[in-house]
Amino acid sequence: MDNNIEHSLEQITTLFDSQRLAVLSTQSQDQPYASLVAFAADDNLEHIFFLTPNTTRKYENLITNPKIAILVNNSLNQADDIYKAVSVTGIGSAAVVETSDKTQLLNMYLKKHPHLKGFSKATTTAFICVAMKRYFMVNQFQNVVEIQVK
């Protein structure tokens, strides 16, 4: 089982390293909403970060209801994605980063997305950290594993 968890975490790390974008799900008043974000994760996969203008619906939603889901996958819009692609859904709680280590975390984030440096500096841009609770990884069509991270 320990091998399984390690192997699965490695697979998730590999997937996260290979993908720039993730689909973020937020909700407000029973209405789910999906949007695309440029994400980065920390080494132990306990946190996922992204930037968003604070005027957006996703921002509005996550401030009201911090419980979010985020999906990363490596499909190529081909028929064989259905068994070749790996897809990971994570659930967790989102919050604006306002702590003292914001600069350090933002640097880590910008290492993956250097072209967003200007975007990150805007006054209206919020740097969001999601404390991850659980991951769900789907591969080989319908094999699903769950990993509780916190």
């Binding site: 089982m1 320990d2 399984n4 968890i5 699965s8 769900f136 789907v138 080989q140 069509f141 319908q142 094999n143 699903v144 594993v145 769950e146 990993i147 509780q148 991270v149 916190k150």
Partner: peptide
């Protein structure tokens, strides 16, 4: 007996779907 998942730690692992 499969190795018991370490449910005492904060991390645990479970197969949700098996095909």
């Amino acid at each position: 007996e499969p190795a018991l998942s370490d449910k005492t730690s904060k991390r645990w692992f479970k197969f949700r779907q098996i095909v």
